[in-house]
Design a protein around this nucleic acid. Structure first.
Lengths: 126, 126
DNA sequence: GCTACACCCGGACGATCGCACGGATGTTCG
DNA sequence: CGAACATCCGTGCGATCGTCCGGGTGTAGC
């Protein structure tokens, strides 16, 4: 399947092979990250982390986003099992799911927020 | 601009507003995460983290991916400033960029790998 | 010089994503 | 009982993404 049969560093290739995750695993990770890699969804998670619960309308107010956008974001987050909802009357309150991907994901978000604030988006330092 | 003028929990909304990142910041984070949220790119980073340097062809061998896919992944990673390249003759060696986004990103990747291995993609805990 | 090689680049195609729009569901109030 | 409300769902559009294809650049060896 490879276009050339001449590994320059056969040793390193073999070593790398043992430490590179399976494509299957990588796809799973990518799916989780794809869910986090959206401005609206990330902000929804931050908001839900800041306060315990919020309903859809209030969430839209807090994020200054359209209710459609928030609704779609919540739909995706729910599909990924990251948030859970509690229905009280005609209002639906959302919160972070009980088994939220460890505080690690939140760590990840916060760390990257800090990072992006420091160096900007495409900034490199040659 | 909001469709309804009746916040259910005006207090929580105000509190959430102070802790939710700017949309601008969220976009920056989303861009970084989008770069990581791809099976090929994530595996490239893992491989480069495992061994010091690898050239494109060997990288394709280690990942069992087409050279085109690896080439595109490296192009994107380079554009994001996550990898740097060293040219020796006609071979180009890639490594993690000197100012790699802290080991945090790698932490994040590893943690999510572990997570995805435990519960799968859409797994809930009944 | 000329061929083979390792890699890069630009365009094209299919797939997916995020959001806006319309309609539908269940709930509260007069 | 009927109207207003908060939210959900399916559809469509514009944009972006990832990969494949063909051709190009610079180097190593004969």
């Amino acid at each position: 399947m490879a276009d050339h049969a001449h590994p320059v560093d056969a040793d390193r290739v073999a070593r790398a092979r043992t430490r590179v995750p399976t494509r299957e695993d990588a796809v799973a990770v990518a799916e989780v990250l794809t869910v986090l890699a959206d401005p609206t969804r990330a902000r929804v998670l931050h908001a839900l982390d800041a306060v315990e619960e919020l309903c859809v309308g209030d969430l839209a107010l807090a994020l200054e986003a359209s209710e459609d956008a928030v609704g779609y974001a919540l739909r995706v987050l729910r599909g990924a099992g990251l948030v859970s909802n509690r229905k009280v009357g005609r209002v639906v309150f959302y919160r972070l799911a009980a088994g939220f991907p460890e505080p690690l994901a939140e760590h990840c978000l916060r760390a990257l927020t800090d990072l992006s604030r420091r160096s900007g988006t495409g900034g490199s330092t040659p």
